[in-house]
């Protein structure tokens, strides 16, 4: 169980050997390479968006509205005459920001709570499990909508909701892994040498838990992008005029009988991003930990 993932870890990262082996293995996975290329393109366009855009994505033009693609406006314009291509490029920033902030905070909290649940006293474990199960039993989108009803629609609400709903899954995985390690003989051996709990957690448990967790998180990126886009599509995410894929799709949906271009321009980036991150995540999992999802 742990040995499978033992190739991924801080100890090996320094050596060129395992990393080279990883690259060789990864290149054989053609779908994974496609995913990696897509992810690199999307992340690059988000970082360098100001240099890629052809127009100011938020400036309202007096000229053509809902225009079809032309040389000037590659993907046409929206109902306010804004350049759709520029908005789609700029729109990559919000989902990626939402994904990185929400997942890294969910990761941090989940890691700590999972370690506590897995290594702490039994009653605390049961209590935390109850909390995790409670949060997980909320239907995610409906829970998100309820939170937004309370907090008001904003990017921060979306991030908070995603972090809250994905945290229990990570915490559970960490807990399961920690508990499996806890009863293992090498932990007893460490204790017998006089090692304290902090040392055991940091030096021995954490590296074993981190690998599977990172893969899990990377596989959740597309889901987060989808949730963020979905909430923005419902008008519950970022506020206009901030460009965002879900918001563009929503504009397109509202004018779907007038022009197909907005829908196409809003949806394609979502499709490419979710596909790219999914393919990459699956490839990473296949290489490092093929059995990971089974014990969820």
């Amino acid at each position: 169980m742990v040995i499978v993932s033992s190739r991924l870890g801080p100890n090996d990262a320094a050596e060129a050997g395992p990393f080279g082996a990883f690259l060789r293995q990864f290149r054989k996975n053609r779908v994974g390479v496609v995913g990696a290329v897509l992810v690199i393109l999307i992340v690059a366009s988000a970082i360098f968006a100001p240099f890629v855009v052809t127009h100011d994505p938020t400036r309202i033009m007096v000229g053509p509205r809902l225009a079809p693609p032309s040389l000037d406006f590659i993907l046409g314009t929206d109902q306010l005459g804004r350049d759709t291509f520029s908005r789609a490029i700029m729109g990559s920033r919000i989902p990626l920001l939402a994904a990185s902030v929400s997942l890294s905070s969910a990761l941090a909290v989940g890691l700590v709570l999972g370690l506590i649940a897995g290594f702490g006293p039994r009653w605390l474990d049961n209590l935390l499990l109850l909390v995790f199960d409670t949060i997980r039993s909320f239907p995610s989108i409906i829970f998100a909508l309820a939170m937004i009803a309370l907090l008001g629609p904003s990017l921060a609400s979306v991030i908070l909701v995603i972090a809250t709903t994905s945290m229990p899954i990570y915490a559970r995985v960490v807990r399961t892994q920690t508990e499996a390690q806890r009863s293992s003989e090498y932990i007893a051996a460490e204790r017998s040498m006089g090692a304290g709990t902090t040392r055991i957690l940091a030096v021995h448990i954490l590296p074993n838990v981190l690998g599977p967790l990172m893969i899990l998180v990377s596989m959740d990126v597309p889901a987060v992008i989808a949730v963020e886009a979905g909430l923005s599509f419902l008008g519950m995410g970022v506020r206009p005029p901030t460009p965002d894929w879900g918001a563009i799709l929503n504009d397109g949906y509202n004018y779907i009988d007038r022009t197909p271009w907005l829908v196409i321009a809003g949806g394609i980036p979502i499709v490419l991003a979710t596909l790219g991150f999914t393919f990459l995540g699956e490839a990473l999992r296949d290489i490092f930990d093929p059995k990971l999802r089974k014990d969820l």
């Binding site: 003989e185 090498y186 017998s192 021995h204």
Partner: peptide, 24 residues
């Protein structure tokens, strides 16, 4: 107990299982 654990040491049953798998 820690100072006494310095003066006694235990070898566990499973020779491989008692070694932390990620350490050299």
């Amino acid at each position: 107990r820690k100072p006494y654990l310095r003066r006694m040491a235990m070898m566990f049953q499973d020779p491989l299982g008692s070694l932390s798998p990620r350490l050299t």
